[in-house]
């Protein structure tokens, strides 16, 4: 299978144009999923079903998104673009909250987590998107979906990872350092002071992937967007400049989201009388 693809790819690259990926080509790449399923079965990972369902979902979701994007790009309505952004934000929030399922059995906590992560992502990603599209790229018209939708997707995706990591880490830090937190409280500390160190560690853990991303970009692998642009026939130099914008944008958006998320979420761990609230262990 592989040699066929490689030969085909090499041949078409030699023609110096963009290769059209046909449905037949997609069927051929599905062989790679079969390889993954085979390996999972051989090593008894139990991921066969996951790969299968995941592959089907990926196809369905991406094709659907493709059609939606085509519609968005041709319709050119500002309110359609805003609706798309809101839907993206809500999906990201939902995904971030889902990952905390085990810890959200306490009444009201789930809703609080929705509000907190949703708002943090809205603020962090919203400010970043507005800054990049309106001040840096100055897109015309201001709602140009070709820029707003994919850029917001990247920002929110990163912010979501940051928010989920931060929430998970803050919760586990507070749980494992209960004694230390209560020792601070017992000396008259405010909850913010008592949870300062766990909060710092949660923010750190959530942001270290962003730092690592900046450190290694271009060395280990080419980022997806840049790869896409190059494959689509763009000059690598322009692709690189876009990638720099994207990297800085992701760092800023994720940092804003994560810090806001932790400072706000940590309040839910304490009662008004500065007591560490009892909750279901993670």
């Amino acid at each position: 299978m592989m040699p066929v693809l490689l030969v085909q790819a090499a041949r078409t690259l030699a023609d110096a144009g963009t290769i059209d990926v046909t449905w037949t080509d997609l069927a051929l790449t599905a062989a790679l999923i079969l390889v993954a399923i085979g390996l999972s079965r051989w090593q008894q990972l139990g991921l066969e079903r996951g790969f299968l369902v995941g592959a089907v979902r990926a196809v369905v979701q991406l094709v659907a998104v493709g059609y939606i994007l085509v519609y968005l790009f041709t319709a050119e309505h500002w309110w359609l673009v805003l609706i798309a952004l809101v839907v993206m934000l809500l999906s990201a929030t939902s995904a971030a909250v889902q990952r905390r399922r085990g810890a959200t059995r306490v009444a009201g906590e789930r809703r609080a987590l929705w509000t907190i992560s949703g708002t943090s992502m809205l603020v962090g990603s919203g400010i970043t998107l507005a800054y990049v599209t309106q001040l840096v790229l100055r897109v015309q018209p201001w709602y140009e979906p070709r820029y707003l939708v994919p850029l917001f997707g990247m920002i929110v995706g990163n912010a979501m990872n940051g928010a989920a990591l931060a929430a998970e880490r803050l919760s586990s830090e507070l749980e494992s350092h209960r004694g230390e937190v209560e020792a601070y409280l017992a000396l008259g500390a405010t909850p913010a002071r008592a949870a300062a160190e766990p909060s710092r560690r949660a923010m750190y853990a959530a942001l270290i992937p962003s730092v690592n991303g900046l450190m290694t970009v271009g060395l280990v692998q080419l980022p997806g967007m840049m790869t896409g642009q190059i494959l689509a026939g763009q000059s690598p130099l322009l692709a690189v400049r876009y990638q720099i914008v994207v990297m800085f944008m992701l760092a800023g958006g994720t940092a804003m989201t994560t810090v806001m998320m932790v400072l706000w979420y940590r309040r839910t761990f304490f009662t008004p009388a500065a007591q560490l609230a009892a909750r279901v262990p993670v």
Partner: peptide
């Protein structure tokens, strides 16, 4: 004790835990 500010109360009523928790 609920009529005292909680921080001030805790400073008047010190607590030493079963397992000592040292700060860094």
């Amino acid at each position: 004790i609920t009529s005292y500010p909680v921080g001030a109360l805790r400073r008047r009523v010190g607590f030493v835990f079963q397992r000592p928790a040292m700060f860094p």
